[in-house]
Nucleic acid binder design. Sequence first.
RNA 1: GCGCUCUUAGCUCAGUUGGUAGAGCAGCGCUUUUACACAGCGAAGGUCGGGGGUUCAAGUCCCUCAGGGCGCACCA
Length: 720
Amino acid sequence: MQTPIPHIPEKLLKPYNPTDEESRLYKIWEESGYFNPDNLNASKGPYCIIMPPPNANGRLHAGHALDMTLKDVVTRFKRMQGYKALFLPGADHAGFETQIVYEKKLEKEGRSRFDLSRDQLYKEIMDFTLESKKNMEDDVRRLGTSCDWSREKFTLDPEIVVQVQQTFKKMFDDALIYRGIRIVNWCSRHQTSLSDVETISKEQSDPLYYLQYGPFVIATARPETKFGDKYIVMHPDDARYSEYTHGQEIVVDWINGPITATIIKDDVIDMAFGTGVMTITPWHSQIDFDIAKRHNLEYEQIIDFNGKLLPIAAEFAGIHIKKARPLIVEKLKEKGLLVKMDESYVHAVPVCYKCETVIEPQIRPQWFVKMDALATLALGPAENGELTFYPENYKKIYEYWMSNTIDWNISRQIVWGIQIPAKLCSNCDWGVPDLDDTINKCPTCGGPVVSDTDTFDTWFSSGQWPLLTLGFPDGNDFKTFYPTQLMETGRDLIFKWIPRMVIFGMYLAKQVPFHDIYLHGMVNDEKNQKMSKSKGNVVSPIALCDEFGADALRFALVIGTAPGNDQALLKDQIKGYKHFANKIWNIARFITTNTSDMSDTAILTEGDTIIYESWRSVAKKITEDIDHYRLHIAAEDIYHYIWHTFADEILEESKALLASDDATVRASRQKLLVDILRECLIVLHPFMPFVTEALWEILGQTLFAKGTTQLLLITPWPIS
RNA sequence: GCGCUCUUAGCUCAGUUGGUAGAGCAGCGCUUUUACACAGCGAAGGUCGGGGGUUCAAGUCCCUCAGGGCGCACCA
């Protein structure tokens, strides 16, 4: 029977309690300065991961926890390997998203953004964002993220705003940005245009109406747009309509009386759909707009920006299209123009990705990024191997998107964001960048000019994030850390964000912004359902940290899910890894209590050498797995080794050997246990930083280093 | 319609270059012998969705079928 040994800290005699350790240890790490690579005694070169800046408009969600953990595992690993490792944090003002969050807040207070002046609204959202930003940063810390806070960037930092605006000017000068009068995706609820990636398609069933249009029958799901239709389009090869010629005019009786219609022949028409004939509404349809442009046709607005019909709709003017449709159908029926209705028509309509309001295509003058040449620029590095995708199949998705680009609308009619530094003519469609506020007259028509009140699409600034955070073009960090090694983010950003960063990197710095692209899947609830506020199934990662410890949450997020795959966040699993943290704690207790008389000069016996070498081979495999971003396998292996080999086999067998009369055997075994424990703590540290550091703190005084107080955080990795 | 992805133990999922299947949790039996019951030992449980092919050898590669998920296109 062993008596308790006085030098064992009281703490080690009790079960591991994460809440006692985590915030205390994070503070020690942060104050040590080692999150800052400038303070590292690095034996190897720079290594950099840029944090995808979380939106500064709320707390972190479970997806963020995975996001932070994966990058932190790699950063800690690289730091311990001796790299000058930088994990560079940030915060995103998240233009449209934050404005929506704030509008909801206003709504609750019985206010509306339309009652506030631009300046007032901007100021209020800024206050809100800066407050939210603090909370968000606390959450990042809570997860143990070892990022260099001294380098943190916010997307509205003055120097960042300046750089973003300069990029706009440069792209305009290079003819990569133009002011275009084109169809945009208009959300009538949020009163702004949206890019193609900010809309989602939603399947719905609507009646398809077959209408008599002169001698033709046309099919439409949107009779409310048809008032002004005066072009009738058919395929040039359609034998059914060969008697009609391109440009021929006919008079037809239409909704509000006779109308002169012009025949247009165009081969975009699908002869098999409906009747093979359609009329066009160029103001409210991309395809129709393209046809109109091709044949130089006129276009007219039918629906206003609030979704109400304009005077062209006669007695329906001022009525919202949703209410107007049945009334219009009724009138068509009365006039005998409704031939039939197909009730089984199912199609997908684009909706606002935030509020699901059906997108109304509208024509508006906006700033557009010309994508063709830039997309080619982004495809090069994917094809020549400068970019590596994990998992590989995301390369295909990336290439698909970059091979099918449409020009990118970067104007948003919202206050919250970086203002577009441009002057617009009040009389004509002219517009030009004006960084220094020096232009006061339209050079085209001599008319008065006004400042553009629109702000940039948030992806226009975050697309430049690796450049902006590192101080492009001449900052020291840019010279040291660009291009970075790894971009790790959610799989949903493979087409929203990743290509834009590559584009800006290639365009501005002539180099890729990163070499490896790792995409993680979505974190779902216990039933593998997407978490959403409306479903009420959102689980806070911070609450999970409180219940099980950040280490357990981190481990559960990393293990058991392959890159790119979605995962269900299971409480039982997290609990299992909380037990694992405790297991290590207990292992350390056992070893401590049995090694108080350990000799400094102990030599491993032949048998113990074999055991040690087999651990080394496990550690080597884990090292290779992390190097290849197989973090889920590495985590599994360290777990399995510690619990089922080290504890279940080696420790159990040691009980007899430690009681041996042979001093050589006993000393060898003591050394073996201490050496393996020491290296296990190092190897486990990237995954479970807190419990390992807590043990290191205790054992560093008694077992390991004999007096050194070096943090585990910067202890060299045992496998070179 | 185009593209991607998934289908492995009761549940949730791993299985990296092809070499006769693993984890967590749940469940079963035993153990309260001081590292740990947030535990240990033991047993049980899968013809790796169906079919075909390549190979000495396939959960792992190819084809095909079925079912699930996701993205894109389509308001003709």
